[in-house]
Design a binder for these strands. Structure first.
Length: 923
RNA sequence: GCCUCCGUAGCUCAGGGGUAGAGCGCUCCCUUGGUAAGGGCGAGGUCAUGAGUUCAAAUCUCAUCGGAGGCUCCA
């Protein structure tokens, strides 16, 4: 009888031993292939949650697997430690951000250790330390010197609730992405990074193996559109209005212009008569938030400025309006309105009774399209009309120059000097300064307004500790004279850097966190970069993941990687493109969701038969909307299979069978409804403290052990999808670990074994290795574990049948333990030791897959009649076509199917990678 | 409205032109000195629906229905 599996004892024991023996230290070794596995660093919020485990432990398993396969693996960890929550804690709890952050880090480090991950803690980097932010400042300075960082005036996002400006990427639907509070636009002088210079390169994902959705999101965010810029003269003199259009082929259809209310020229061109109305409208728009302006189906409003512009293509005089449907933040903040071919302009023209002129005649329409008949704008393909020299040009559905009409018009605009080809981006430069305390100082000073960068030897500009944190709309540092006052005429910059800047280069700091001569060591960079596999959440798609790509490209261009490139060349590696992108492969994990769920509440009426209702009418209603006197069933649908639903009626479950012609009413879903649209209890929600459905990993580790939690997270979800939490399912992986423990600690079987049985278990082992390899390769951790469970079941069966002798047992256990080591590192290490193998299993090599050993010898030949399986014959795996056909035709199934007739056709399908061979006989 | 991805056993998920699979759950039986457990047997699926291509479709194509995520006065 063996000793019981006590996860705690062995987990703590091995975590200490691993630390002491430094088996996770990673060092440059030019003789070995490298693998830089990186998982997104946590923000030290105070507690590790299950999402961290879900992101990190599978990443750890994969890093461990790479290591066992012979790669020199770097798998570091650190903390993204600047940011608002620390400052908020300082304000609300009167605790200094340093203290709050550091105590959180201490705590989270312990929690991270309890995962049993192979983090190399010697490489830990914490972004709020002077040793770290010194280099954030240094990069800022380099950016400035190379024209990438600049100070400029722009309309920026201002958050009232946070009392700071924010980058566009941090504003979602007009709200601050962190607090959900509305932001307003303000004209302010701020620091920017010129990310727009890199827009086109950032659209190129050629060398990246990244998830498609992330690439799409970044592409959408950058929002490249091709078109033309055209300048419209106004009648007030030297104030032309620049517009950008993607549809220069509709220029002749422009019957008015619209400026955003915030546009600079509004004050200049408005006539005396219209001034009062215009000012009132501008005022009204200013108090509205972005959110209100973006509401869908909003009535188009606007006012006439009294001014007119001249359309350069036909010298027509057209009125200039202002309206809030034109955004100052996109393009030039002004548009030429073409109501016939743009839906927004169409709605505005109808609302304001402005003329509409058709200039694209739909191709398939016989009669000329008349403006007065239009119910909506026509934005499809057609022939240009009413457009002078351009008449007859074909406008297709294509965008940019791919559309012949657009190409022709652009050429003509350029030839006549009326306009030019232009590319517009939705992306704006990255606003990098913040009016907050808890961030890296910006190493700039102002001498009578002239910007100077702090000298390298004076870096870092240290963040002072004794400041008052109350947000006032100005950085707390502006009240701290010892900080900002350099001398009588020189004043220090008091804004701080966006924390996203600090996290844009942390992967470089891990290379040499203690280096005080450079942000990173050239040889380390030459060896480890780029990151081979990056794992983390998809919520960073257009923030962190775009910023870090931009950052890397800037560093490359300003020569920060030159020394590393030189080392690479010297070591015989090709630096070409090595520093173009920070992370080659990216994989996003899904989200672990809470277990909460709710189904539709329904009213069912019909007749009763054998204890269940046969319903001819089912209506979805609110949970409290039972009509008085209703005598059918009312309850929540807790389950549905096909047309049978189970209703929860105040705790009692009732069965309802919905008749095929039953009337189904679901108010939320328009049109005729059907059974499949009825929702049963599957509404799942995100975990959140307010819903009270958070899962605490510490408690889980306490209850089941870290290995079981790791395996549960990897086994019970498709990692890239995530899913609902169901703690009950932890029994699966727990049972697996338990069984392996027993098989291992029971010791070698005292039986002779059976050669056929041993051969069979060896074959299954190698089939398992293949599946586990593929699972880890493809981040399909669930299949990798399921396969090992299957193997365990087979092994258990074979042992029970006394088929396995001691030698085979030992060899199988040796490989089995190595297979499970990446997933359950502690129990694997313990069993490895108990079976007398050399420390450590994590330094052992990965079991080699042998296709020959995995091959089946006997297989079932499937006999299909007209494609339907009708029988099987036991045959050798490598059966030849002739022999297979012969056997199949002679089989009883074939004889029955043919009924004496000759087959019309026979098809032989050889068995390949595990599938059985087949013969299809067409009768 | 547009873009991506997805619908396979009660649940969570593999597979993916050629016999429908895993874990958990469930039924029944055994064990009750491995015990908030263990062992064994078993049941469960028209692979969302409809049409097409094919000797053969869960798999490929199209449509419909349903789900998840993203974008959206983007000129």
């Amino acid at each position: 009888m063996s000793e019981n599996y006590q996860p705690h004892e062995i987990e703590v024991k091995w975590q200490q031993r691993w630390d002491e023996t430094e088996i996770y230290r990673s060092q440059v070794d030019w003789d070995r292939p490298k693998h830089y596995a990186l998982t997104m660093l946590p923000y030290p919020s105070g507690d590790l949650h299950i999402g961290h485990w879900f992101a990190m432990t599978p990443s750890d398993a994969r890093a461990r697997w790479m290591r066992m396969r012979g790669y020199n693996v770097l798998f570091p960890m650190g903390f993204d430690a600047f940011g608002l929550p620390a400052e908020q804690a300082a304000i609300s709890r009167n605790i200094h951000p340093w203290k709050w952050t550091y105590s959180n880090i201490e705590r989270m480090r312990d929690q991270l250790r309890s995962m049993g991950a192979m983090f190399d803690w010697e490489r830990e980097a914490i972004s709020c330390t002077p040793e770290y932010y010194r280099w954030s400042e240094w990069f800022f300075k380099k950016f400035y010197e190379n024209g990438v960082a600049y100070r400029g005036s722009a309309l920026v996002n201002w958050s009232e609730s946070l009392q700071t400006v924010l980058a566009n990427e941090q504003v979602i639907d007009g709200r601050d992405e962190r607090t959900g509070q509305p932001v307003v636009h303000k004209m302010m002088e701020q620091w920017f990074f010129a990310i727009t210079k890199y827009a086109d390169e950032l659209l190129d994902f050629d060398i990246l193996d990244w998830p498609e959705p992330i690439k799409i999101m970044q592409t959408n965010w950058i929002g490249r559109s091709e078109g033309a810029r055209v300048s419209f003269r106004t009648e007030v003199g030297a104030h032309p209005i620049e517009i950008f259009t993607t549809r220069p082929d509709t220029l002749w259809g422009s019957t008015f212009m619209v400026l955003a209310p915030e546009h600079d020229l509004v004050g200049v061109i408005t006539t005396k008569e219209e001034r009062a109305a215009v000012e009132a409208y501008v005022q009204q728009t200013a108090v509205e938030t972005e959110i209100e302006r973006m509401l869908e189906d909003r009535e188009k409003t606007g006012v006439f400025t009294g001014a007119y512009a001249i359309n350069p293509v036909n010298d027509e005089r057209i009125p200039i309006w202002i309206a809030d449907y034109v955004m100052i933040t996109y393009g030039t903040g002004a548009i030429m309105a073409v109501p016939a071919h743009d839906q927004r302009d169409f709605e505005f023209a109808r609302a304001q009774d402005l003329p509409i002129r058709v200039v694209i005649q739909p191709a398939e329409m016989e009669d000329l399209l008349g403006a007065e008949d239009m119910a909506e704008a026509y934005d499809g393909p057609g022939t240009m009309v009413n457009s002078d020299v351009m008449d007859g040009s074909m406008s297709t559905k294509d965008k940019g120059r791919a559309n012949p009409a657009i190409g022709r018009v652009i050429d003509w605009l350029e030839a006549t000097g009326k306009g030019e080809e232009s590319v517009n981006y939705r992306l704006h430069d990255w606003l990098i300064s913040r009016q907050r305390y808890w961030g890296s100082p910006i190493p700039a000073t102002y001498d009578d307004g002239a910007i100077e960068m702090v000298a390298d030897e004076d870096l870092p500009v240290v963040l002072p500790e004794d400041v008052d944190f109350m947000p006032t709309g100005r950085s707390p540092l502006t009240y701290h004279e010892p900080f900002f006052k350099v001398d009588d005429s020189v004043r220090r910059e008091t804004d701080t850097l966006d924390t996203f800047m600090c996290s844009s280069w942390y992967q470089l700091r891990y290379l040499s966190p203690d280096n005080d001569k450079a942000p990173f060591d050239a040889e380390e960079a030459a060896y480890w970069l780029p990151v081979d596999v990056y794992t983390g959440g998809a919520e960073h798609a257009v923030m962190h993941l775009l910023y870090t790509r931009f950052f890397t490209k800037v560093l490359r261009d300003i020569g920060v990687f030159d020394a590393a490139s030189a080392v690479m060349r010297q070591k015989g590696r090709d630096p070409e493109r090595a520093f173009d992108e920070p992370m080659v492969v990216l994989r996003n994990q899904g989200q672990v969701l809470g277990a909460e769920r709710q189904g539709d509440y329904v009213l069912c009426s019909g007749r009763f038969l054998g204890g269940k209702m046969l319903a001819n009418r089912v209506e979805v209603v609110g949970w409290n909307e039972v009509p008085a006197g209703f005598d059918g069933y009312f309850g929540e649908i807790v389950h549905r299979t096909e047309n049978v639903i189970r209703l929860d009626m105040a705790g009692v479950t009732q069965l309802v069978e919905i008749l095929p012609d039953a009337e189904i009413i679901i108010p939320e879903i328009a049109g005729e409804n059907n059974v499949n649209q009825l929702r049963h209890h599957l509404e799942i929600q995100r975990m959140s403290k307010s819903k009270g459905n958070v899962v605490n990993p510490d408690e889980l580790v306490e209850k089941y052990g870290a290995d079981a939690v790791r395996c549960y997270l990897m086994f019970n979800f498709d990692w890239q999808k995530g899913g609902p939490w169901n703690e009950n399912n932890i029994k699966g992986p727990q049972g697996w670990l338990h069984d392996i423990w027993e098989i291992a600690t029971d010791g070698a079987p005292e039986v002779e074994g059976d050669p056929a049985g041993e051969r069979d278990i060896e074959r299954k082992l190698h089939q398992t290795i293949a599946v586990v390899n593929r699972g880890l390769e493809e981040f399909s951790f669930n299949t990798a574990i399921a396969e090992q469970m299957k193997f365990k079941n087979s092994l258990k069966g074979a042992l029970r049948e006394r088929q396995i002798g001691p030698a085979t047992w030992k060899s199988v256990m040796n490989q089995l333990i190595r297979l499970m080591a990446p997933f359950a590192p502690h129990i694997a290490e313990e069993l490895w030791e108990r079976l007398g193998f050399e420390y450590s299993v994590h330094l052992a090599s990965w079991p080699a897959y042998d296709a020959e050993l995995a091959r089946e010898e006997q297989v079932e030949l499937v006999v299909l009649i007209n494609g339907k399986p009708r029988g099987t014959i036991e045959v050798a795996v490598d059966i030849e076509r002739e022999r297979a056909l012969e056997l199949a035709l002679a089989s009883e199934a074939a004889q029955r199917g043919l009924a004496g007739k000759a087959p019309k056709r026979t098809i032989f399908i050889p068995g390949r990678n595990g599938s059985d061979p087949k013969v299809n006989i067409v009768v």
